[in-house]
Design a protein around this nucleic acid. Sequence first.
DNA 1: CTTGGCACTCGCAGAGTTTGAGTGCCAGCA
DNA 2: TGCTGGCACTCAAACTCTGCGAGTGCCAAG
Lengths: 340, 340
Amino acid sequence: MVVEDRRLAVLRAIVEDYVSTEEPVGSKALVERHQLGVSPATVRNDMAVLEDEGFITQPHTSAGRVPTDKGYRLFVDRLTQVKPMSAAERRAIASFLDGAVDVDDVVQRSVRLLSQLTRQVAVVQYPTLSNSTVRHVELVSVTPTRLLAVLILSTGRVEQRLVELEGELADDELSELRGSLNGAVAGEQISDAVTTLGEFHATVRPELASAARTAAVAVREAMSDHRSDARVAVGGTANLSRFGEFDTTIRPLLEALEEHVVLLKLLGETGSDGLVTVRIGHEGPFQNLATTSVVAAGYGPGEQSIASLGIVGPTRMDYPATMASVRAVARYVSRILDEA
Amino acid sequence: MVVEDRRLAVLRAIVEDYVSTEEPVGSKALVERHQLGVSPATVRNDMAVLEDEGFITQPHTSAGRVPTDKGYRLFVDRLTQVKPMSAAERRAIASFLDGAVDVDDVVQRSVRLLSQLTRQVAVVQYPTLSNSTVRHVELVSVTPTRLLAVLILSTGRVEQRLVELEGELADDELSELRGSLNGAVAGEQISDAVTTLGEFHATVRPELASAARTAAVAVREAMSDHRSDARVAVGGTANLSRFGEFDTTIRPLLEALEEHVVLLKLLGETGSDGLVTVRIGHEGPFQNLATTSVVAAGYGPGEQSIASLGIVGPTRMDYPATMASVRAVARYVSRILDEA
DNA sequence: CTTGGCACTCGCAGAGTTTGAGTGCCAGCA
DNA sequence: TGCTGGCACTCAAACTCTGCGAGTGCCAAG
C-alpha cells in the first residue's frame, strides 16, 4: 500500500516537473527536487512499473520519462484538487467582467480574461437560446414584399431574418400580423415557441395566412438555426507560440479554431454549471488534435448550463491552475447572467 | 535607356523568382530561367547597381539577392499590372458569395473566400454605418424602467442598446415615444440622425422629455459607437504556417489580429472603391510587423467606399495575383451591396 | 557596354566524435 | 520483500571538421 502511494507520488512529481520544465524528467532530478525519501534507484523501479502500466513513456532510450495521456488523466482525476483562487485573483476577475454592458460584451471580455489568466487559447460559446424566452417579435416592412423579422429574447439577444412575401402586405395588415404573432409566442420558451409557430398560420385570418406562414418559418429558422450553430468567440491565439511543431500541432488547431462547428464539438458536452470537464489528447473527437487538451465548464443563469467556455492547450499544461481559472470565470459569468 | 530597362527586368525577375522559390536568387539561375539575352556577368553588374540603389540585398556574402521593401515597392508600382481573373475564378467568386443571406453573411463568406484565394490571412471590415440610413427604431419594454432600443438600418444591420429610464413609462407613452422617434429619424442618414437626436427631447411632450432624452442618447451611442470601433472578421490564420519565425513574425501578427482596433489601423485608409492599396513591410504603422505586407481595397455600394477588406501576408508574396484577388472580391462585394 | 575567366568567400550538409543524462539489472543488505 | 549502491550500456544532442558549390567581385579583352 505504501509502495502504491509512493508510486502515485512519483507520477505526480513527474507530471509537475514535466509541465514546468517541458523536458523529460529522470530519476535523479526527481529525487533532488521532491522529498520522496527514497533513492533514485527505487524511483527507477517505480518508473518501470508506471511505464508498464502505461502512465508514462520514454521518448527514446536514455531519456527521462514523459507522462502519457493516461498519466495525465490519472493525475487530473486523483492527484490534484482544483486550488481556490486567491482574493486578488477574484478581484481581478470581478473588475475585468463587471464593466460589461451586454451579453456579447460579457462573452468578449471573458475570452480575453481567460486567455490572459491561463495563457492559453480561450474559447467562449455565446449563450444559446434554448432556455431563453421570447420577449418580442418585431416585423418591419423593408419593401412592399419584404419584411425584416426581428426576434428579441429574454437574454437581451437579438436575431434577425429577412422574409420574402408572396404578395404585398398593407401596413395595417402588418400590424395585425405583428400583434397576433406576439400574442402567440411572446413570453414562451424557445422550444415551445417553435412548436407554436408551426401552427401559427392557421390561427389568423385567411387573407393573412400566407404571409403568416412565411414569417413564422423565418422566425423559427432564426430560433433553431442559432441554437445549433451558436457562435463562439476565440482569443489568445498568440499563446500558441509555446506549443510544439507548427504543422503537426498549431496548424490543425488554428484550422479548428476557425470552424465554429468543430470548435463547439471540441468544447463538447459540459456537465452542469460549475463542473469542470477535462479532455486530454486523444480523448477528444479529433485525431489531428491528439496533443491538445480542452478544459471546459458550462455556465448559465441559475443552476442550468446553457453554454460552455474553456481553453484549449497542449496536453502538457498546468491542469490545476487552468481548471481553477476556468471554473472561476464560469462561475462569475453565471452570476452576471443571473443578475441580468 | 535600354540598360535601365534591362535593370528593371532583372529586378522583376528577381522578385518573381524569389517569391516562387523562397530562396535568394543568383545571377546564373536568373539567366537560365528568364530570357534576358545577356550573360550572367552582365546581370551581376546590374545586380550590383540595384543593390547600391537599395532595391535588393544579400543575406550574406556568397548568397543570391533578395528584394528589399523598396524593391517590392518599385515592383508593385511599375513592374506589374494586376492580372485579370479568369472566367473560372470569377464564377467561383460569384458562386461563393451569391448565397449570402445578409450583410454579416457576406462579410463572413468574403473572409473565407479571400483567405482561400490568396492563401493568406484575410481581413474584412464590416460595413460602417456612416452612409447608411435609419430604417426603423424600435423601443421594447424590458422592465418598467428599462427599454431595449433596436436600431434597424438600410443595410439590414441591426444594433441594440439597453436604456435605463429615470421613471416608469406606460405602454401608451412608449408607443407615443416610438412614434415620434421614428418620425424624427426614420429615413435619415446616420450623420444627420445623430444631430436630430440631439434635440429630440425638446420636440416631445414635457412628460416624455426625460425618457426621450435617455433613449435618444442610447440610440446615438449605438450609431456612433459602431461607426468608430467597427468590427472586423478574420480568417485563414492557418495560412500563417508558411510565414517565417514564430516569435519574430507570427506572434506579433496573431496579437494584432485579435486587436480589432489595431487591425483597422493596419487595413488603413483605403482609396476609393476598386483601388487596391499595398503597404509593404516597414511602410505600415507597426514596427513589429516589418516583415508583413497588407493588400487592401475599399468597398461599398455605388462608388463610395464605406469599409475595407484585404489580406495580410509576408512581404514575400505574389503581389500581382494577390492584388487581383483582393480587387475582384472587393468589386463583387460592392456589387452585392448595390443590389441589396 | 558586354563578356568570359578567375580567385575568393562562406553557408550548408554530412561524417565523425564526445559528452552526459538516463536507464536496466544485479547483488547485497535491512 | 523491498531498498540501495554500483556498474555497464544506450543514445540524443552538441560540437568539430571538412569538402562542396553557389555565388560574388574584379579584370582584361572584345
